[in-house]
Design a protein around this nucleic acid. Structure first.
Lengths: 204, 204, 204, 204
DNA sequence: AATGAATGAGGCTTCATTCAT
DNA sequence: TATGAATGAAGCCTCATTCAT
């Protein structure tokens, strides 16, 4: 149970890659619609238009299927973050933060249910805390950016955790307004970043 | 599926109350350890030391069991919030906010896994969001406090959502430091509360 | 399983008799409404307004409960038949047959579902074929009547079986008309009674 | 509950058809022996020599399994009736009626318990009575035959109900004699068919 | 490689029956 | 004697996974 298996084979042929993509897409759609409990390997295979046997050809079990989606989500997030920082290069850090948040928010608003499942319902996210290479890369990326702006780079991990939480929590609002949410999240994160190093508690 | 059943019979005798408490306690422990999917009615009954039939005497189905825990969590949260505001009455609002966050954080640090399940994994999203009387009461409570402090009371719903997200997200940290997390969360929420009414996106 | 237990105790007190009657009445109503599968001892006890424990005080198990209803039905049928024959004494046998059929039909139209269950769905009716004393008494009664009218008394068993089948089958019609059904059933039974002793088949 | 599900997938391959046949055969045997309540999906699968999963591959639930048997019985009855009428074409209607009854009786004597369950215990009474296409076809077939013989075709529905009742009732006799029973049933039905249109109740 | 029929452990739930109070 | 909470065997059904074709 604790092992998170990888895809059984690297899709070498174009057809294989297409099948894998179809399966992942189908699984994502079901996850978005019905949650983790509503996803069955048979439903995913059917929606993907392949046989259940073919699904198991590429994914050794159901967990691997969701793990692949999780991984894909990590890649998208990393790419989005890098792109946002690149495009906003030169702007004040607050503006860059807004860009970052806005980009991530857009990513999640496209499929809030899916991301909620991947981030919260997916039972394996406690297994590898930070040794997930994608998470690590994202942390490095953000830490580097913080350092470049004179901000405390060691706050990158928690900053990401806070961003994640806020984005997922607010993306589930009834009628989410991207611009407004961006301001809220960015403001909250900025406040964290500018918190004095280890200010003594006033009371106690 | 959309029905949210209630307990099948109110525990009248002392024995009954004890059985119900044991079942809830067992369910909470399993939920904490194995997540929603890992909770089975038979496991809960066994861990509670009662027969499966007894479980169904008090809870018409598995959902009702989790719903009861959810409800209990809501009550605890509401009581905690009220108590924190009462105790900190007269302090500046920032200090009150810290008290509030600190109290809620303490509540969640006691069983972070359980609360993650109850708040995020528990598929109650089909139920009307705010007609949960406990949530509504909590919102009212916070809105009243905000109004009393000259803060925008209409931000109570989102404030609570943000608090929730941050607390649950950060409570899962490896070695959470309550005091430190409190400062982070409070700062983030304070920043949201003091955001200008509808500031233009251009300005910092 | 093959044993058909009797009521555990003879109701001596008035209260006991009342409780037993209430339980039987409740069971009959549920049987009528929901069929054999829909009858549960707990439902019967609740509808009767007594505790499940009390039900088992008077009926050792569920089968005994239904057996009691079955027995009661047999008694009613026997009484009805005797009464019909008595009242029609002196009339030609065809008229008496109509009286008999009419009386039985009326009995069944009052609660067709219940009687269907008791006669067809009740799994024990294959166990004692004719050693049921009530059935035997009914057969004797009818045989005697047949003999008195110069009709073949040895056909009583099959006559009763045919009457039973027809009455139960036709009582389930959508809008049963008692008078019309009586004529149909009586005509059919009369035809059987007047069938030549062992007439050679015309063909073959 | 009111849904009357169909087979989940039509047996396409030879293997599938064999499995379906084995399941139906096993279910029929259990139904015959133990009645509806005694039939369990697991017992049927085991007796059929297939896994419980395979049973549910072809029958979405227990009801569908029995419905399939019911349907099969309807088809057999219809075919038998048509064949009997065809073979006896040209004979006087009384002889044809005997052929009809004889053929149906033979059908039911092969497995009287099964047919009793299918016709009487099977709780299909909520389904519209005559929109079962097989029943309707049988009625049409008989009505047409009656009309051709100068008999009241509008009596076909009740005639069938009476035939059904009598056949099922008498097929359960201890040592049924087909020829004898045929004469009894045919005589009874003939009497119904020749009943005067709406004769006054007073006359004999 | 692809297919999809087959498998069977295991989950949820019911209900006849018992027994402590 | 009455009560009703407690019991647990047993039934229905799902779904991850395998394997013969």
């Amino acid at each position: 149970m604790p092992m998170i298996p990888q895809a059984r084979k690297q899709p070498g042929q174009a057809r294989s890659r297409h099948v894998v993509a179809a399966i992942l897409e189908a699984a994502a759609r079901i996850l978005e619609r019905d949650g983790y409990a509503g996803l069955t390997t048979n439903k995913a295979a059917e929606l993907a238009g392949v046989s259940i046997g073919s699904l198991y050809q590429y994914f050794p079990n159901k967990q691997a299927l969701v793990a692949a989606l999780h991984s894909r989500h990590g890649e998208e997030t990393l790419a989005t973050a890098r792109e946002a920082l690149r495009l906003s290069d030169g702007l004040p850090w607050q503006a860059q933060l807004e860009c970052l948040v806005s980009a991530c928010l857009r990513l999640h608003l496209a499929a809030p249910g899916l991301h909620r499942v991947l981030e919260r319902e997916w039972p394996q996210f406690d297994a590898p805390p930070e040794d997930n290479p994608l998470d690590a890369a994202l942390q490095d990326c953000v830490a580097e950016w913080l350092a470049g702006g004179g901000l405390p780079a060691e706050r990158a991990p928690r900053l990401l955790r806070m961003a994640d939480s806020l984005i997922h929590g607010l993306a589930l609002e009834d009628a989410p307004d991207e611009a407004e949410l961006t301001r809220c999240v960015a403001a909250a994160l900025a406040a964290y970043l500018t918190l004095p190093r280890q200010g003594p508690e006033i009371s106690t």
